[in-house]
Computed example of a mutant assay.
Amino acid sequence: MTDALKITARPLPLVDAGGGCACCDPTPSTAEAAADAFEQHNPPAQIAVFEVEGMTCEHCVGRVTDAVKAVEGVREVQVQLVPAGLSMVTVATDRLLLPATVRAAIEEAGYSVSGS
């Protein structure tokens, strides 16, 4: 005679943070936590904003982002696309860079920097 295994099921509580059940709690990954810690202890040396003319789509955003990221010392590039106007390109660097260096990268990608 075998003893029957008794299985009891209970529902897991939901997590309000948008992640579903408690076993799938959306906690930051180790890489995300390390990046956040790095950012807190190593703030950018410089943050500069450029007004860029001629960007009309996400393809343009990609071209400008890739061109600026290729500049040595650039840590991060964020683009706020304004198709009918001046798009804002924010650049964070690990060291001080001349604005002309970033401006040249944007212009080589085929776009105009306002005020240049």
Rank of each mutant, 00 (worst) to 15 (best):
M1S: 10
A4K: 14
A4T: 13
L5S: 14
K6I: 07
I7A: 04
A9H: 07
R10H: 05
P11V: 10
L14R: 14
G19E: 00
G19N: 05
C21N: 13
D25K: 15
D25F: 09
T27A: 13
T27I: 15
T27D: 08
P28Y: 12
E32M: 10
E32D: 14
D36E: 15
A37V: 00
A37T: 09
P44D: 07
A48G: 08
V49N: 14
V49G: 06
E53H: 07
G54L: 05
G54R: 03
T56E: 12
C57I: 02
C57S: 03
H59T: 11
R63V: 00
A67V: 11
V68P: 12
V71G: 12
E72S: 15
E76Q: 15
V77A: 05
Q78P: 00
Q78N: 09
Q80E: 15
V82N: 11
P83H: 00
P83E: 04
G85Y: 03
S87K: 03
S87G: 00
V91R: 11
D94R: 09
R95T: 12
L96N: 12
L97F: 05
A100M: 11
A105R: 03
A105L: 07
E108D: 15
G110Q: 06
V113R: 07
S114V: 11
S116L: 10
